[in-house]
Computed example of a mutant assay.
Amino acid sequence: MFDNLKPNEIEDWICIFERGTEYEVEAAKNYLSNMDIPSQILSKRDSAFSLNIGDTALVYLYVPKEYEQQAREAMEELDLPAESDSDKEEE
Rank of each mutant, 00 (worst) to 15 (best):
E24W: 01
K88P: 02
E26A: 11
I41S: 07
E26V: 11
G54M: 02
I41G: 11
E68R: 06
I16F: 00
Y31T: 10
K29E: 10
C15D: 02
M75C: 09
R45D: 00
Y31N: 12
L78T: 12
P38R: 14
P38H: 08
T21C: 05
M35C: 08
E90F: 06
V25R: 03
L58A: 02
D36N: 14
D79P: 02
E66Q: 13
N30G: 12
V63H: 12
R19H: 14
N30P: 00
E89Y: 05
L78Y: 06
L78I: 14
I37R: 10
F49C: 07
D87H: 03
P81D: 14
I53K: 14
T56I: 12
E24M: 09
L61R: 11
F17A: 09
I10Y: 01
K88T: 09
S33Y: 04
A71D: 09
M1R: 02
S43A: 11
M35G: 00
K88Y: 03
E83Q: 11
E22V: 11
K88Q: 13
Y62H: 11
S84M: 05
R19M: 02
C15H: 00
A74C: 10
W13T: 00
K29W: 01
Y62L: 07
K29N: 09
S43L: 04
T56D: 07
D12N: 15
E18P: 01
C15G: 03
S47T: 14
E26F: 01
E77T: 12
Q69G: 01
E73N: 11
A82H: 10
W13L: 15
D46L: 07
Y62F: 15
V63S: 12
E22G: 03
S47I: 10
E90K: 00
P38L: 07
R72L: 14
Q40P: 00
D3K: 11
K6S: 06
N34Q: 13
E11A: 08
Q70N: 11
I53M: 08
M35T: 03
V63A: 07
N8V: 10
A57L: 05
K29D: 04
N4P: 02
G20L: 00
A74E: 14
E91S: 05
Y31I: 09
E11H: 12
S33W: 02
Y67C: 09
G20P: 01
L78V: 13
P7A: 08
E83H: 12
E66M: 08
T56N: 12
I14N: 13
N52V: 06
A48K: 13
L58Q: 12
K29T: 00
A82W: 01
E76T: 05
V59W: 00
S33P: 00
N30S: 14
E77N: 11
R72M: 13
A28L: 06
F49L: 15
I10N: 01
A28F: 04
M75E: 07
A82N: 12
S84K: 03
K44L: 06
P7H: 05
